[in-house]
């Protein structure tokens, strides 16, 4: 059970959160301008490292903030507590 640090609430138990997917590149403004392959790539090909991965967490049973952290997939060590996405 991870201990995640919400930018608003501070360190909280994993049971307050939902995994928000890996932190992919920002959704392009113009999907229409992209080739089919590029679009499918953006949607379906994530980074899958054995090591630090950037991912989002949603504080669903908490303040509702989405934030990004860097977590090592081998050890669960949080190597970078990212910033909140909320303005």
């Amino acid at each position: 059970m991870l201990l995640l640090t919400c930018p608003f609430c501070g360190p909280r138990d994993e049971s307050e959160f939902a995994h928000g997917g890996y932190a992919r590149k920002q959704r392009p403004d113009n999907p229409q301008m992209m080739s089919d392959d590029a679009w499918v790539d953006y949607l379906t090909v994530p980074d899958n490292p054995m090591g630090p991965v950037r991912e989002k967490w949603w504080h669903v049973r908490g303040c509702g903030t989405y934030f990004t952290v860097e977590r090592d997939t081998r050890t669960h060590d949080i190597t970078d507590e990212g910033e909140s996405h909320a303005s």
């Binding site: 939902a18 928000g20 959704r27 989002k56 509702g64 989405y66 909320a86 303005s87």
Partner: peptide, 14 residues
């Protein structure tokens, strides 16, 4: 709800 929050906070925070 999750989908909307995700779009708002991650894709369109501005």
């Amino acid at each position: 709800n999750r989908h909307m929050e995700h779009v708002l906070q991650i894709e369109r925070p501005q």
